[in-house]
Simulated scan of single mutants.
Amino acid sequence: RLVSHHGLDPGRVHVAAPGADIAPLAPGTDGVSRLVCVAAVTPRKGQHRLVEALAAVSDLPWSCVCVGGLGHDPEYVEQLRALVARHGLEDRLVLAGPRAGAELDATYATADLMVLTSYAETYGMAVTEALARGIPVLATDVGGLPEAVGRAPDGGVPGILVPPEDPAALAAELRGWFGEADVRRRLKSAARGRRAALNGWASTAQSLAGVLHRLPGEPGGKA
């Protein structure tokens, strides 16, 4: 896509995919009801679409924590809080702010399903971070998210992709997640298979080093 979009010479374009170091398998909660969204709270990440979808399935026993910075677009954050209140979801959907390190690990450990409603993503590292813990993904079909979701070695897909402008489609897939045990088993199995096949950051660094090593030297012997 980069080659065609920018008119680049394919022979001079190299890819070092972001890594995802395998983490302990997430035990989750009850295997179905804990949803986690990891993304800065901005219009581009589309959390308002997530709220709309969750409001449409408020009869289901979900809880959701949204992890991500709240300072990028304070006006959007306030609009989002108002939307959550309008639908009466304050006790079920939490804007937790940024988390890192052990605190973020603990959040992922409680997750049964990762949800991401972005309008654009260059790759989607939060997706691979979830898959590195064996957590299935429900995300929008944009940018690099299909690549990040990927496939398990046996061909299984560890996630579900929906259009970014369709909260109804997201809600329908959430109903399927809650209502169809076979769907959950299939997604969880594929997520664990994808986890085992992920390349870590050491592989990314090795790929990048290989590209740099092949660069032609400048006059005087300097690379």
Rank of each mutant, 00 (worst) to 15 (best):
E90C: 14
G220P: 10
L116F: 00
A168Q: 09
V67W: 06
Q206F: 13
V65A: 05
E103V: 15
V77I: 09
V84P: 06
K45Q: 00
V211A: 11
L161S: 04
T122A: 12
L50E: 11
D182E: 07
A100D: 12
L113S: 07
P146G: 12
L208F: 15
W62A: 09
E52D: 14
A82L: 13
P167V: 02
A209Y: 14
G150N: 01
E180W: 00
H5M: 12
V38M: 08
G156L: 09
M125V: 06
V13K: 05
P219V: 13
Q206L: 14
G143D: 08
A85L: 14
G134F: 09
H48D: 10
H48P: 00
V115K: 01
A56M: 11
A152Q: 03
P136L: 01
P158Y: 01
G159A: 03
E129T: 04
A191I: 03
A181W: 08
P136Q: 03
G179S: 00
P43M: 08
S118Y: 12
L215H: 09
A39V: 01
V13R: 10
R175E: 05
R195K: 04
D59E: 12
I135W: 02
A102V: 15
I22N: 01
P164F: 02
S207N: 10
P167T: 04
P10S: 04
Q79M: 13
L93M: 13
Q47Y: 00
I160T: 04
R194N: 01
A56W: 08
E180D: 10
A181Y: 04
H213T: 12
V15D: 01
H48W: 05
C37M: 06
L212G: 05
I160P: 00
L215R: 12
E173K: 01
V3T: 11
G31H: 04
P24Y: 11
T128L: 02
H213C: 08
H87T: 03
T140R: 06
V41D: 09
C66M: 11
A132Y: 06
T122E: 05
C66Q: 07
G221S: 11
L70M: 14
R192N: 04
K45P: 02
G193H: 06
A171C: 08
V127Q: 09
G220W: 15
R34I: 03
R184E: 02
G101H: 03
D9Y: 14
E218V: 15
D105H: 13
L95W: 10
P163K: 07
L131R: 10
P146D: 05
E75A: 13
M125D: 01
P74G: 14
P98G: 13
V36A: 07
I135G: 02
A106I: 11
R151D: 03
P43C: 05
R195M: 03
A223M: 10
P164H: 05
A139Q: 02
H5Q: 07
K222T: 15
A130W: 02
A16W: 08
P74W: 15
E103F: 12
G68L: 09
D9S: 02
V127G: 06
R194D: 03
V149F: 11
D9Q: 06
R34G: 06
R151S: 07
I22V: 12
L70K: 00
A106D: 09
L80G: 00
V211P: 13
H213E: 11
G101N: 04
L174M: 00
R34N: 11
